[in-house]
Every structure is written in C-alpha cells, then in structure tokens.
C-alpha cells in the first residue's frame, strides 16, 4: 500500500469518491473556462453576421486589446482601484482597526466590529443604492453634510468615489483576519519591547510584523484578487463618465453585452485571468520564502 494512501481506500475507490466533485468542477469551471478561451479566438458577436458565422481570428483579439487605448485605460484604472482600495486602503485600515480594538473594551470592540462587518455582508445592490443616494448631485447626503450643493461626486470624482466605496465595503475582511492574527503575537514579547523602551513603530516592525507576515501576504493576495475582479463599480458608475471608472470587469461587460463583441470580451477575460495568475504566483513565491 503506498504511503500516500492514508485512508486505505485504494486508487480506484478514491477516484470514485472524488469523481462527482470532479465532474461538477469540469462542467461548471473547466468547461466554461475553455469555452471562453475558444470564443476569445473568434470574432463572435451578439448580433450581426459574425453571430451566425464566427471566424477564427486567432490572437487578433489579444493584439487588438493590447493596442486598444480603452483597454490600457481600464487596466490602469484597475491597478489604481486595487492599489488604492485594497493593497493600501483595506490593508492599512483593517490592520489599524484590529490593532486599536485589541485593548478596547469588549462592548466597543463588538460594536465597531459589528458596524464594519455590516458593510461587508449587505448585498451589493442594496449597498450600491445607498451609496448612490449618499453621493447624488441633487439632494445627496454627502453634499448636505459637507455643504457642497451640486457636486456630482460620481461624475466629477468617479475613481476616488469608487476607491472610498470599496474601502468602506471591504475593510471588514482585513480587520477580522488581522484581529485573529494579532492573537498569535506572544504578549510577553510585547511586554519586553515596552520594557526596553521600543517606540510604537519599532514594536510593530520588529515584534508584531514577523509573527503575522504570512497573514499579511495571504490577506493581500485575497483582497487583491477580489478587488481586481469586483463588478460592484458597475452598479455605481457603469464605467462612466466617458470611461473614467471603467475597470477591467466593467470593460469586459460593456464590450460583451453593451457592444455585443463577445469574442473580444472573452479574449480580454483571458488576459484578466493571466493577470490574476501572475499576481497569485508572485504572492505564493513570497509566502514560500517566509520559511
């Protein structure tokens, strides 16, 4: 019996057990992925002649995307969005909240956690509606609070609005993850650091961070991927005005269903998949170096 067969089932029976799962994964994950790669090689459209007789155009869609200024624009906006709202924003805000709540009274901790969590668990459509109401030009709550009547936040500052929105929306995850990560930092080491008179910054850098490095990387990986693929911006700005908030998922949707260019949009999805894979690989490398 091979050493890997810890359950003692034997290869045949083990395969029979995982077969249903593999079939489901095949039907709902592998098949659509391969299908969209195939469509990405054609000039398939929603209407018009190419919807009946799509031609194989090979890599034309990919090369077309790479020279399409709108694609470049949306790639840049996606980077901005990920960097601003996830990498920097959610990470730092999440950690700060977790760190500050560590020593807080129990009820305060629960209250803040509850509020932050609420932003995370509400359905996207509800949240988007609330934010549109807050940021509206005529009678929006924010304009009333800041006394800035007539400022159309989603039109004049679309990317900043989206970044702040996503910061608000997604911080809960980082906060929860860091809360539990901070529990693994031995209190004795923090005590010692205080005894020798270490400042707040050096305590964080030399005592806390080495313990939670793996958590930081895992958290960053997850929120980066989520944010890069997030479609919620569509509910707030639909990519507008004039493509100024058109992140890649929104761009893909607009190309596929707005313009009907299904082939082109599939090719761009494929590019987005590649970008995701690269990001994941980089993080995994960093994680491995930890050991």
């Amino acid at each position: 019996m091979p050493a890997t067969d810890s359950a003692g089932l034997g290869r045949g029976r083990a395969l029979a057990f995982v077969a249903p799962a593999l079939v489901l994964i095949g039907i709902f994950l592998v098949f659509p992925a391969l299908w969209s790669i195939y469509i990405g090689l054609t000039d398939y459209t929603l209407t018009g002649p190419s919807s009946v007789n799509p031609r194989i155009v090979g890599a034309d869609n990919i090369t077309g995307a790479l020279s399409d200024p709108l694609f470049g624009n949306s790639l840049w906006l996606t980077l901005l969005f990920v960097f601003g709202s996830a990498l920097i924003g959610q990470n730092i805000l999440g950690f700060t909240l977790a760190w500050m709540l560590r020593g807080a009274r129990r009820w305060l901790r629960r209250l803040v956690e509850g509020l932050v969590l609420l932003a995370w668990i509400l359905p996207s459509t509800v949240v988007a509606y609330l934010w549109v109401a807050v940021l509206d030009r005529d009678g929006g709550t924010l304009n009333a609070l800041l006394n800035t009547p007539g400022t159309a936040w989603l039109v004049q500052y679309p990317m900043i609005s989206l970044i702040v929105f996503n910061l608000w929306r997604g911080t809960a995850f980082s906060m929860l993850l860091y809360s539990s990560a901070l529990d693994v930092v031995p209190p004795s080491q923090l005590e010692t650091a205080r005894m020798v008179g270490a400042g707040r910054f050096s305590t964080l850098k030399d005592v806390v961070f080495p313990h939670i490095r793996g958590h930081v990387l895992t958290n960053t990986l997850l929120i980066t991927l989520w944010t890069a693929n997030d479609f919620t911006p569509f509910l707030l700005t639909a990519g507008g005005p004039d493509h100024r908030s058109e992140t890649l998922p929104v761009f893909i949707y607009q190309q596929a269903l707005g313009s009907g260019a299904l082939g082109y949009a599939s090719a761009i999805s494929f590019l987005l998949l590649l970008v995701n894979l690269v990001i994941a690989l980089v993080y995994l490398r960093l994680l491995r170096r930890r050991g």
């Binding site: 095949g26 391969l34 009946v52």
Partner: peptide
C-alpha cells in the same frame, strides 16, 4: 490520471464549442 482527465474534458469541450453561432 489528472492529465488524462483534463484531456477528456478538453475533448468534450471542443466539439460543443464548434456549435457557436
């Protein structure tokens, strides 16, 4: 084994994909 499963899935996908349009 995994590789042969993958190629089976690919083989299943391609003829179906020919139906586009």
């Amino acid at each position: 084994r995994r590789r042969s499963l993958m190629s089976l899935l690919v083989a299943l996908t391609l003829p179906a994909a020919g139906c586009v349009g």
